[in-house]
Design a protein around this nucleic acid. Structure first.
Length: 113
DNA sequence: AGTGTGACTTGGG
DNA sequence: ACCCAAGCCACAC
């Protein structure tokens, strides 16, 4: 087996995927939040990378991930529209600019010790 | 090996 | 609230 191929991914990647899959319906998380929960506070861009690379293969709810401003981060208009559609189907409201009320829909994992 | 890029974030004006 | 600049990190060319 060659390393770095297929499922031989770094712990960070695995964790990110796990976290994204754990986002409940009707809620969203930001890239920075996910990165932080996965152990890398500055890993927002890597979360993006992972989403690009693994979302389809792992069937991740990519549409539940938004940027820190609470808006759709995607540049592509078609995909952006699709994400909005998915979210509205789950009860997440957004305005015409694709902005979501994070105070209302952000998912916060209960890290109670 | 160096440069550019991106579904990011934060801070300042 | 909006726009801009700098910081960050992995990956593509």
């Amino acid at each position: 087996m060659k390393k770095g191929s297929g499922q031989s991914m770094q712990p960070f990647t695995r964790k990110v995927i796990s976290i994204i899959k754990s986002i409940p319906e009707g809620s969203v998380m930001t890239y920075g939040q996910i990165a932080e929960q996965a152990g890398s506070a500055r890993g927002a861009r890597q979360v993006v990378r992972i989403l690009h690379a693994m979302s389809e293969a792992h069937g991740l709810p990519w549409h539940r991930v938004v940027n820190a401003k609470g808006e759709i981060a995607i540049r592509d208009d078609e995909s952006r529209f699709r994400q909005l559609l998915f979210l509205s189907g789950e009860g997440v409201e957004a305005d015409d600019e694709g902005r979501i009320d994070l105070d209302r829909f952000r998912y916060r994992p209960d890290n109670r010790d």
